[in-house]
Design a protein around this nucleic acid. Structure first.
Length: 423
RNA sequence: GGAGAGGUGGCCGAGCGGCUGAAGGCGCUCCCCUGCUAAGGGAGUAUGGGCUAAACACCCAUCGAGGGUUCGAAUCCCUCCCUCUCCGCCA
């Protein structure tokens, strides 16, 4: 959430920055709401103050044994006027709140301009894709009977998958390897969290109120949703709290399934398991001091990159342009892995700095030891990595023209010592 | 799912419908005293919002959440949520 005070004072500048995202902020609408808010708040608080004084006097008169009837009469319809004004004020405040909560995070100045992914800027590459002296097969072909999309469709519908035997094991091995690496080498604390969250939690990280159609609602009596990413429950761990400055940074790693309805993505990536309604992800989340978040973004991105390197997967890092940025992010670095069958790089991790945007929504603060006052923390997260997509990348990059794929050294211990996976 | 108890400030814990943003204690911060330690004395110590260039002051809100009664609600009524104990069921 954008700081309401800054919005009030520098709406023009903020509108300018949001324009980089392709957002046209309705400044007049905002100003009108804000003017009414100011007026009504003044009125409501004034009336409440009056009521308080009057009630206090009645109390004192009563204690003194005086007749309170005239005093009560003098209050008149103050209660009624207050109720009317309060109702109006609440409505305006709710409108304003909705308006502000629907505004995305303004891009950081370092974010490249552009409208969509074609304007993203490549930052670096690691290992050029190795050529094959045969036509590379895609992951569906390589997986063979270990990937049963038909069975998944039968029991759940499209965009779900069933993995069997060696493929299921590889999927699990990848997950364990990633968690262990982040815990042992990068200093993250492993957390296990609910896969179901309530509305309030999703507002905290920014999925709601704007993107409800992308989520899986539990339905029935319960106003709950399946998590679209571990970011949601894990970041909300610090919701409505004031942390000691020396507790920071908090670094969490969580492995969870992720559920996305992705209503707007029909017809996109329909082949194989690249884009699914349910997928697994190992997620990195950091809660940091506001001075540290840009450093933390570099570090977190490097942590995710180290997984790709250990798995010997060619990748590149890309800075998302302003128009391609997610709602809550001030800046995002995507990691894209090389997929030989597609002959291009595809997203496998997305590392973002949200600054205080989520913290403000969540009321996640820390105590500044200097001033003694609470300040908002900064939050970050990144996939480290998406498990299903890592699986795809491993199959496709490690094929050798046979029915088997090579298992990288990093995974060998997790695969019972196997160097090759027979599919 | 059934029965009961309870949700108050960082924690513990009071709180006749009015003077309670909230007693008291603990903790924490600062100061004094003390030749060290222990003890002691004093002051301070919620969050959000408004106002402000900003701060102070001031104003408003908040005692699980939401409604209601009342001139006035932490205190009364209703609904919901959560925690704990016992029983049942169960990975």
């Amino acid at each position: 959430m954008i700081d309401p005070r800054r919005l009030r004072m520098e709406i023009g500048a903020i509108a300018e920055r949001l324009r980089r995202r392709g957002i046209d902020l309705d400044v007049d609408h905002y100003r009108a709401l804000e003017t009414r808010r100011k007026h009504l708040q003044d009125q409501v608080e004034g009336l409440r103050s009056q009521r308080r004084q009057a009630s206090k006097r009645i109390g004192e008169a009563k204690a003194a044994g005086d007749d309170i009837a005239p005093l009560v009469a003098a209050v008149g319809d103050l209660g009624g006027r207050l109720a009317d004004a309060a109702k109006e004020f609440d409505a305006v405040r709710d409108d304003l709140d909705k308006f502000v909560k629907a505004l995305p995070n303004p891009p950081d100045d370092s974010v490249p301009p552009g409208r969509d992914e074609t304007d993203n800027v490549e930052l670096r590459r690691w290992q050029e894709p190795s050529g094959f002296n045969f036509e590379p097969r895609d992951h569906v072909s390589l997986a063979g009977t270990s990937l049963d999309l038909g069975a998944a469709a039968k029991i759940a519908g499209s965009r779900f998958s069933v993995l069997r035997g060696p493929l299921a094991r590889l999927h699990r091995a990848i997950t364990q390897f990633m968690i262990d690496t982040h815990v042992q080498e990068h200093g993250y604390e492993e957390v296990y969290v609910p896969y179901v969250v309530d509305r309030h939690t999703l507002v905290g990280t920014g999925q709601l109120p704007k993107f409800e159609e992308d989520l899986f609602a539990i339905g029935g009596e319960r106003d709950q949703f399946l998590i679209p990413t571990a970011e949601v429950p894990v970041t909300n761990l610090v919701r409505e709290s004031i942390l000691d400055a020396d507790e920071l940074p908090l670094r969490f790693v969580a492995h969870t399934p992720c559920f996305r309805s992705e209503a707007g993505n029909y017809g996109k990536d329909t082949h194989g398991i690249f884009r699914q309604h349910q997928f697994e992800k190992v997620e990195l989340v950091q809660i940091v001091h506001p001075d540290e978040s840009w450093n933390a973004l570099d570090e977190l991105t490097a942590h995710a990159e180290s997984i790709l390197r250990k798995l010997e997967l060619p990748y590149r890092a890309v800075a998302l342009c302003a128009g391609d940025l997610g709602f809550a992010a001030a800046k995002t670095i995507d990691l894209e892995v090389w997929l030989p069958a597609e002959g291009r790089y595809r997203e496998i991790s997305s590392c973002s700095n949200f600054l205080d945007f989520q913290a403000r929504r969540m009321l996640a603060r820390y105590r500044d030891p200097q001033s003694g006052r609470p300040g908002y923390v900064h939050t970050l997260n990144g996939s480290g990595l998406a498990v299903g997509r890592t699986l795809i990348a491993l199959l496709e990059n490690n094929q050798d023209g046979t029915s088997a794929v090579h298992v990288p050294d990093a995974l060998r211990d997790y695969m019972g010592g196997s160097t090759r996976l027979e599919l």
